[in-house]
């Protein structure tokens, strides 16, 4: 197995530190990482990001990396419908969710509420990545003056809605009001 790890690292041009880090895990973790790598084939930076998050979740929850990969994440890694790039993207999303459970929960809830606003095409609402900054971005794109008027009226209704109030409450304190 270690030979395969070394060849993978060499073939991808990984730094020796990264190779040593991988080889420094126990056998079960090394092997689970190798299985994941065979499916996802990330480059070095993505691999290091994955390792950082896996290490941190393992330390926080006391769950070995092998368990995380084989139980929590195997659905993504082995999903035959996904290509390599999509697997990597989904894997990172799922791992981020495990690594930042409360942040991801708030983001999901905010996005759910944005969807509930049922905004017409031409209005989009965005929250910053990681919720840093505490602001909401609203973009209106109209094709005519009349279109703009209609969109502005829709935006105004959205502004006064309870959903919007809850979005700001969550951005402020992380919890929805009652």
């Amino acid at each position: 197995m270690d030979q395969e790890i070394r060849s993978y690292c060499r073939s991808k041009g990984f730094h020796l530190h990264t190779e040593a880090r991988w080889l420094g895990y126990n056998e079960a973790d090394r092997s689970a990482l190798l299985e994941m790598i065979r499916e996802v084939r990330p480059g070095e930076n993505h691999f290091k990001d994955l390792l950082d998050w896996l290490d941190e979740i393992a330390l926080r929850d006391g769950t070995p990396i092998a368990t995380l990969l084989q139980k929590e994440l195997s659905g993504v890694v082995t999903d035959p419908r996904l290509g390599r790039n999509d697997k990597l993207k989904r894997l990172k999303e799922e791992l981020r969710r495990l690594r930042f459970p409360r942040l991801a929960g708030i983001e999901d809830e905010i996005h759910r509420r944005i969807r509930n606003l049922k905004l017409p095409r031409g209005i989009s609402i965005n929250v910053p990545p990681g919720l840093e900054g505490g602001g909401v971005g609203v973009k209106i794109e109209a094709t005519s003056q009349e279109h703009l008027r209609r969109l502005a009226a829709d935006a105004s209704r959205a502004i006064d809605s309870d959903e919007m109030k809850q979005i700001f409450t969550m951005l402020d304190s992380g919890t929805a009001g009652t």
């Binding site: 930042f100 942040l103 990681g130 900054g133 505490g134 969550m170 402020d172 304190s173 992380g174």
Partner: peptide
């Protein structure tokens, strides 16, 4: 993340 630390500070 910001809502968490704001709530800690408050």
């Amino acid at each position: 993340f910001q809502p968490l630390r704001v709530s800690m500070y408050r």
